[in-house]
Design a protein around this nucleic acid. Structure first.
Length: 107
DNA sequence: CGCATGACCTACG
DNA sequence: TCGTAGGCCATGC
């Protein structure tokens, strides 16, 4: 497992239950600003790293959408989020202003 | 090193 | 809403 991945996972583990974070936000908090793809790649590698302690389902793109295909776990990700209280809008998106992981804001 | 691809982001039309 | 373009980095060939 790469060090950069470990840092990404460490940040993802800090995402509170019932909240979601974007790839760019995770990358930035991990110390890799402007490297959203790195976060995406790290989570992709998580399939093989297999660390159940990483709440990968709480990471979505900046548009509040799931960046996974149907056969890649998108359905599972949505179920896990809904199970935590994260609501999906009729357009299939998550209101980041409401469920986004705002570290510097007391929601 | 070059090239293509990917669980990305922002901007523009 | 969708497509295009530029910018990032890791992985595989």
């Amino acid at each position: 497992m790469l060090t950069s991945h470990k840092r990404i996972y460490a940040v993802v583990k800090r995402i509170p239950r019932g909240r979601v974070a974007t790839y760019g936000q995770v990358a930035a908090l991990a110390g890799f600003p402007r490297h959203a793809r790195l976060a995406g790649y790290a989570l992709h590698a998580l399939r093989e790293d297999r660390d159940p302690a990483v709440p990968w389902h709480r990471v979505i793109n900046a548009q509040g959408r799931i960046s996974l295909g149907e056969f890649d776990g998108a359905d599972l990700q949505r179920e896990l989020l809904e199970a935590e209280g994260v609501l999906f809008q009729s357009n299939g998106r998550v209101d980041l202003a409401r469920f986004g992981w705002k570290k510097f804001k007391h929601g």
